[in-house]
Amino acid sequence: MKSSKAMLGAGVLASMLIISSGVQAQTVGFSQIGSESGWRAAETTLTLQQAKDRGIDLKFADAQQKQENQIKAMRSFIAQGVDAILIAPVVATGWDSVLEEAKEAEIPVILLDRMVDSSDDLYLTAVGSDLVHEGSVAGKWLVDELAGKDCNVVELQGTTGSSPAIDRKNGFEQAIAGHDNIKLIRSQTGDFTRTKGKEVMESFLKAEDGGKNICALYAHNDDMAVGAIQAIKEAGLKPGSDILVVSIDAVPDIFQAMAAGEANATVELTPNMAGPAFDALAAYMKDGTMPPKFIQTESKLYTQADDPQAVYEQKKDLGY
């Protein structure tokens, strides 16, 4: 697989050298936000890996959560004359001038994972996940799993007001709308953390007759689900069977819980944003194919049937 890709890459490279005047994405600059979460670290690992597989020389710059570092990195990439720039922007605003500089230098820019507020002709494309879709994949799983049985669901929301929390809530509600057997009885924020997930789940269990009244938990991320699973166990119930657990992100720890039968399903927010980005870039470099302005990554559903232990082994070294 890898070798065939490399062959293809080499083929493309060779044809490029002949047809165009040697414009091949050989050197790509990548400005990463930082390493604030395990997911971010995994994204970095996978981007480096993807570049290596394709024979791309990736120049990596860690911005340590600061926009000025990212702008500096962008300018240095432009000065070095890289063939393309990947950037995971830390904030949405303030990119116009540096994006224009890149455009003037005819360097395509691809946004990873997050969007910017600039006009969309300033960048080639954006690769990201549809947060509403993630929520609806989780909701659809629950609808299918229950097959019409009555079920009271409790929800652990992300940080109040954050876009993942709002969108993942909406997506889930859209998916369960029209299914009167599913009722969302409690919803509270767990701030995307294990500690709060556990604490809030404890209160849900107390408030709903020791948990007897709850049939499923929907958590906006896996970390809160992992905390909640501990709370359910401490209350003397079995997570995964007494209370179904579905969450989003697909971090390695949830696969351990799934392997132990304590979690039921998770929706992947793939850290491999660079793969689709490099594909779009290669097509653009080859014959100028303009990619769509937003490339949506797959929101893959994992259940206990997907050999969670094997997935855990795959994921655990990505830096999550």
């Binding site: 109040t160 007001g161 409690r186 924020t189 604490e199 209160s203 849900f204 408030a207």
Partner: peptide, 14 residues
């Protein structure tokens, strides 16, 4: 804190 969690108000009010 616990009272707020038990009350079932939307988290925006916490």
């Amino acid at each position: 804190n616990t009272g707020i969690l038990l009350s079932g108000f939307p988290p925006e009010f916490n």
